[in-house]
Design a protein around this nucleic acid. Structure first.
Length: 255
DNA sequence: GCGACAG
DNA sequence: ATCTTGTCGC
């Protein structure tokens, strides 16, 4: 029995790996949108995040917020409290968090009153090469991944990234491109605020180049974490505290 | 083979 | 992700 359970889990992982391979083929790694870095044209940027209940770690509040790039104010927000059935496994975060977030996006798209605020670009917490790519392809949106930590991949490590930042001769540079052992560029580590030693990790999700992603992040960094992500983080946590028992059961439930 | 490992 | 106080500074 135990061996069959293990086999099922392994099969699950294999399915996920295959799904990721298919998604990877659909990725667009260059700028694919009509707006430039002009805030008059890039007006609405979204941010998504999940907060978890301290009592029951399977209960989460997902948030989608949209920010006006000119005022840096929140112009739209929506939340969904759900019970997650898929565990957190490093490397497979998207399979746990993407479904709720896609649903929040879909709800907004169908809402005629809010439709004009639908984000032109989405910032996702986590590293781009995981959740942000996943969401970008499935929602067909330009996405940027913002990690507060680095998921170790292709020989990259958090301490290595920090050393690279520190080792730079040019003191004015607070950004380092992260190239893995394979030669692939995975993203960038950036000190987004003068007073923050700890960098954030920026990476490409979908339909955007790393260079543009970095510039958009700089544009929206009032604090260490860019504002769309920060607001999604703050507000999802706050919503969960205010509505601790209202669980959305409209997600697929295991039977 | 083992460990490291986004949220 | 979550558990957590005070404290320093603009």
């Amino acid at each position: 029995m135990e061996t069959s359970a293990t086999t099922d889990e392994q099969q699950q992982i294999n399915d996920w790996i295959e799904a990721q391979e298919l998604l990877k083929r659909r990725l667009i790694l260059e700028d694919d949108f009509s707006w430039g870095l002009d805030v008059e044209k890039l007006r609405y940027v979204g941010g998504v995040d999940l907060s978890f209940s301290k009592d029951d770690p399977s209960i989460a509040c997902a948030a989608l917020i949209v920010l006006d790039t000119i005022t840096l104010k929140v112009v739209y927000q929506d939340f969904s409290i759900v019970r997650l059935h898929i565990p957190y496994i490093p490397g497979f975060l998207a399979f746990r968090e993407a479904p709720v977030l896609l649903e929040l996006l879909q709800t907004m798209k169908c809402n005629t009153a809010a439709h004009h605020l639908y984000p032109q670009l989405l910032m996702v917490d986590g590293n781009g090469f995981g959740l942000a790519c996943h969401l970008g392809v499935l929602a067909d949106l330009p996405t940027i991944g913002i990690g507060k930590n680095l998921h170790h991949v292709d020989g990259l490590t958090q301490s290595g990234a920090r050393q690279s930042l520190k080792a730079q001769n040019d003191c004015t540079k607070n950004l380092v491109i992260l190239t893995g052992n394979s030669g692939n560029i995975w993203g960038a580590a950036m000190r987004s605020t003068e007073c923050s030693l700890k960098p954030i990790y920026i990476s490409t999700g979908h339909r955007i180049s790393l260079n543009t992603a970095i510039n958009v992040v700089k544009l929206l960094c009032k604090h260490r974490v860019p504002e769309p992500i920060r607001q999604a983080d703050i507000r999802s946590r706050e919503f969960l505290q205010k509505h601790p028992t209202v669980i959305n059961s409209n997600l697929p439930v295991k039977r």
